[in-house]
């Protein structure tokens, strides 16, 4: 198990000086995960905030080998790298262990990169895919994705006079990944560094694909305060909007059960993207959101009891 003291003494692989926003969850997630790797890492990155803001020729924030080629193909790209590693290892041209990590936002993972991810998981490449899920296409200006929560106002699902934000519920990608029967799948949050790094350690230890979906607050997209990023990711977990759980070889474990489950309002209220839901005429929508969360939390507990 990683000790915080040891983790912070490691040089960060994503160096400071990049242009990610104040309060962005992604760099915190990236560095926590990469610091736990027991071997050198090679990284593939989907197009998105993390890619755009971490490199601008001739500068780079990456202290490890890193490649970005397109939006929808981080998993396919990682599968090519990992396969070349096996090819060269077989020929004795490379000997050391290397861990392979792909990063994508929810747009590059839930939507446009969904097929590429599914294909790479099915093929069984030894790599960790990390989705930093901020719930919309933040890099292009907050457009809705299939991860955007019900009711959220985005630039392509704006809260208007007759429509109150996104009308559809979010896709449960973590469970879809579980259905690929890969060795390790988890949901995590940057506020719980111990849980997140334990999960990264487990992911790096399996001989096959692993996937960690991490909630990643985005102040410009969530219309939240930068100082609230860690707090909001904690509330996401305490309201059970984002339960912390893992699935090891098909076995579900809930890693954290809030002593007192907070009402979802506690998470929605500090975020401007949900402001319209608190108009008196939208009380029903809020009720529906709470009901959905309760139902999903119960379903998850049932899965974990199997």
């Amino acid at each position: 198990m990683a000790k915080l003291k040891d983790l912070i003494q490691k040089e960060p692989i994503m160096e400071g000086g990049h242009r990610m926003c104040l309060g962005c969850g992604a760099p915190i997630i990236v560095n926590l995960i990469l610091r736990t790797s027991d071997a050198p890492v090679v990284l593939a990155n989907a197009t998105g905030c993390l890619e755009v803001a971490s490199t601008i020729f001739p500068f780079t924030a990456w202290r490890a080998p890193w490649i970005h080629s397109a939006f929808e193909n981080a998993a396919a790209t990682a599968s090519g790298i990992e396969t070349m590693y096996r090819a060269l290892r077989k020929k004795g041209k490379i000997n050391k262990k290397i861990n392979f990590v792909a990063f994508g936002g929810d747009g590059g993972t839930y939507d446009i990169g969904f097929q590429s991810l599914s294909g790479a998981l099915e093929r069984g490449h030894r790599f960790l895919y990390v989705c930093y899920d901020n719930g919309a296409y933040m890099n292009t200006g907050v457009q809705r994705s299939s991860s955007t929560p019900f009711g959220a106002s985005t630039t392509t699902s704006p809260a208007g006079v007759v429509i109150q934000g996104k009308l559809q519920k979010r896709k449960d990608l973590t469970k879809i990944v579980v259905a690929h029967n890969i060795p390790y799948v988890a949901q995590a949050s940057p506020h719980n560094w111990l849980d997140l790094t334990k999960k990264a350690e487990k992911a790096f230890s399996v001989d096959g694909p692993s996937f960690i979906n991490v909630v990643s607050p985005c102040p410009p997209g969530w219309k939240s305060e930068a100082k609230d990023t860690i707090g909001l990711s904690k509330i996401a977990v305490d309201t059970c909007f984002w339960p912390l759980y893992e699935v090891e070889n098909g076995k579900y474990t809930i890693n954290y059960k809030p002593k007192e489950k907070l009402p979802i309002d506690a998470w929605l209220k500090p975020q401007g993207r949900f402001r319209h839901l608190f108009k008196p005429e939208n009380a029903e929508l809020l009720k529906q959101i709470q009901q959905d969360i309760d139902k999903e939390w119960e379903a998850l507990q049932r899965l974990a009891s199997l």
Binding site: P40, V42, T55, F59, T60, W62, P65, H68, I98
Partner: peptide, 12 residues
């Protein structure tokens, strides 16, 4: 990319 001693960034 696999030369981890000499990290490079592709696709900046």
């Amino acid at each position: 990319l696999l030369d981890v001693e000499h990290p490079v960034t592709y696709g900046a």
